[in-house]
């Protein structure tokens, strides 16, 4: 299974994702520039955190217009795993691959700390190695992480089990229904504000993110049906 980590101007968690997958998990992973037009030969694609295009206009809004975006949308449509963390999540919503939007934190502050999360749905290809409703802890680091969608969309997300991670204690940003991560209806696109790639080595104090990548590596070559 070959995995692409997309590098946008302003990405700053691309190395973390690459090392989490390559060095820690031993996966076959490669950086792909936003200038590229193709992801032929890749089985999964990762959109890293950071501040692509300086968060100009809205976080993630400009990255949507890069050369690589049609190839990412094509992979999503083919049912291949597409993952975005933090700015990657913002880009996935701006590109229409995930519903809703990420707006400014209610507190108006940049929040950077570990937060308790509930794994709401462990029946996805990204979360199969977590126990049902397991409590984990992952770092967050964002100013625009407040998940917003209209009531109808929120109800549909819950009914379809698309809410994968929820903030378990305090809500750090004002996200509606404490949503921290969602998939598309098909389940092959996951976006989340927390950073699992920053929690993969015991020496750094937390390995709760590791099983997300291990789940993907176990399940990733299985194409998700319509």
């Amino acid at each position: 299974m070959r995995i692409a980590v997309i590098v946008f101007p302003g990405s700053n968690c691309d190395v973390d994702l690459y090392e989490a997958l390559g060095t820690v998990c031993g996966a076959d992973v490669a950086y792909v520039s936003h200038h590229e037009h193709s992801l032929v030969g890749f089985d999964a694609v990762m959109l890293p955190g950071g501040f692509s295009y300086g968060d100009y206009l809205r976080a993630g809004a400009i990255a949507r217009f890069t050369n690589i975006m049609p190839a990412i949308i094509k992979m999503a449509e083919e049912g291949k795993p597409v993952f975005g963390t933090c700015n990657g999540f913002q880009i996935l919503t701006e590109a229409g691959l995930l519903p809703g939007a990420l707006k400014r934190n209610d507190s108006q502050r940049f929040v950077c700390k570990a937060v308790p999360l509930e794994v709401v749905n462990n029946q996805t290809l990204f979360t199969s190695r977590y126990r049902p409703h397991e409590r984990i802890s992952l770092p967050i680091a964002h100013a625009d992480g407040s998940f917003y969608a209209d009531q109808k969309t929120l109800d549909r997300l819950e009914a379809n089990h698309q809410v994968v991670f929820r903030y378990a204690e305090e809500n750090p940003n004002g996200s509606l229904r404490n949503i921290a991560g969602i998939t598309n209806q098909r389940g092959n696109v996951l976006g989340m504000m927390p950073h699992p790639e920053r929690a993969v080595e015991a020496i750094l104090g937390n390995t709760d993110g590791l099983r997300l990548f291990k789940s993907l590596l176990t399940n990733g070559s299985v194409k998700v049906g319509e």
Binding site: L57, R58, A61, F65, T93, P99, G100, A101, K103, Y148
Partner: peptide
């Protein structure tokens, strides 16, 4: 297509 995110 660009300036407005109609979700919010």
């Amino acid at each position: 297509q660009l300036l407005v995110n109609f979700n919010m």
